[in-house]
Design a protein around this nucleic acid. Structure first.
Lengths: 276, 276
DNA sequence: TGAATAGTGTCTGTGAGACAATATTAT
DNA sequence: ATAATATTGTCTCACAGACACTATTCA
């Protein structure tokens, strides 16, 4: 069939002639939490935390999952959709959001073909004043172990423990891209274990060459606090002087001090967003 | 409505209850081309090239576009679909392929809502023996200029010239992520100017910390050739000694020489894929 | 022989890793 | 006074930028 022009073509065009599908977004909402230590002098122990929601519907009813939802193709972009989910979960609007990856293995959803674009959101947990939604909970990464190309991630929300085991397979010799294979995952829905690992690795890379970390920090923070967040993300200790040199251009010292910690007080800093 | 278990739920589930859409993949197929100089002694001038296809259907009939196609939701993943397109275009199967980004602004396709996941493919052009498909052509990047946050890209295939102008708007202060806004684009379909810019910037970043560039090289190459490819991607000159130090672990010297160039011959090298 | 590229030597400054020393608070 | 963290000083080594020099081919 031939058409005279684009207008004619579009008039005759019927979208339902083609096979179609649904899209969702999944949100990896990351923050950092502190756990008090018994010794009043010791600093709190920090860990990464992930916001999970318990599914109240099939499929995967009563399992934990990343917050997410179907995109409305008429009205929403994927990012709009992600923002909507984020607003529902956190009541906040100005949260760092980044497209992570589009996951689309054919049977990832038992209902039908669903392609999901995952987003990373970084929050300062303390900004979330109100109670979380029902069936929603922060899980701390209490263990993150990597050996050869195996990864074990243990999550805990105070009540429940979720253990994820994955294997990384190098995709090609010229980069460090991996296929992630789920080895053990009893508690998380869909392919969300893979989304989590993909996101954590992205974050770990990005804090080395961006200021992305400040999206997870409060306005005022001590350098030790900042260093701890770096350490928790990178999953390794950093040397103090090297760390301070590294961030010296990214932060501005303020007059404020943090006192009452049982040891020498520290200056409070804030992000210098005019750096480079 | 309540269900006893997941099996019951799935039985009653009708995918058509929800709004659905179509997905496509677009391929940014990149390679490097050489243009002879008049002086037999001078080395060839290299430039990046992009494979474009002239659309023979509405919408955007007779305009150039990135090769791409609709994904079959029943049978294909997005990557399968991209591989299929790539095979159609190049007759090759073992080509570097990487998911770039998912583009989904609501009106990017005049027919209906179409979400497209773009892929980057890197090829050594010389491997493509046969003639290209009809209406398909390599366009060289004959000009790439960036000032403030404006970018001008000029493409040429020997016959036609395509000029793209875009503006970059910083998305947030903590990273260097941009929104790309199309300023001038008379010849390319859809949002493909934005896909191209996104891909070129990704490539430029990635050659700094991966070996991805060797996907565009033939098996044997001289260091000058390799350096020229780096320079063309980075869009700047590199110093010889620094360059040679930088790649010294990535390549292995062979016995072969490249002679007959009107000047001192050079050793041929190959990629060392066991490096790190 | 000369034009052109191939390839190496080396100086210098910057910056990361490592370790040590000093400073200051709350109990 | 002491335990704990805060903060700074400094040595060393590796390495990137810069420039200059030598080597080798072929029309």
């Amino acid at each position: 069939m031939e058409f005279k022009n684009e207008k004619e073509f579009l008039k005759a065009y019927n979208p339902n002639d083609f096979e179609r599908l649904s899209m969702t977004t999944d949100l990896l909402i990351l923050s950092v939490s502190s756990k008090d230590t018994d010794n009043y002098r010791k600093t709190d122990k920090k860990s990464m935390s992930i916001l999970l929601a318990k599914r109240d519907n099939y499929p995967y009813k009563d399992k934990w999952s990343l917050p997410g939802g179907f995109m409305n193709p008429k009205k929403e972009t994927l990012e709009d959709c992600a923002k909507r989910v984020l607003r529902d979960e956190t009541k906040l609007d100005d949260i760092y959001l980044e497209q992570l990856y589009t996951f689309d293995s054919i049977n990832r959803d038992p209902r039908m073909r669903v392609v999901s674009t995952a987003f990373i959101a970084l929050v300062d947990k303390n900004r979330i004043k109100k109670e979380l939604e029902e069936n929603t909970s922060w899980f701390d990464i209490v263990e993150y172990k990597e050996w050869n190309n195996n990864v074990k991630i243990t999550l805990n929300n105070g009540n429940e423990t979720i253990v994820l085991k994955l294997r990384k397979e190098l995709k090609d010799k010229t980069t460090t891209r991996y296929n992630y294979i789920s080895i053990e995952n009893k508690s998380l829905s869909f392919d969300h274990d893979i989304v989590i690992l993909t996101g954590l690795e992205r974050l770990r890379n990005k804090i080395l060459y961006t200021d992305i970390i400040f999206n997870m920090m409060p306005k005022y923070f001590t350098l030790s606090e900042l260093q701890q967040v770096y350490e928790v993300i990178l999953n390794k200790k950093l040397l103090d002087p090297a760390f301070r040199r590294m961030i010296s251009n990214k932060v501005i010292k303020t007059e404020r001090m943090k006192t009452g910690e049982g040891h020498r007080p520290s200056s409070l800093f804030r992000y210098n967003n005019e750096n480079k």
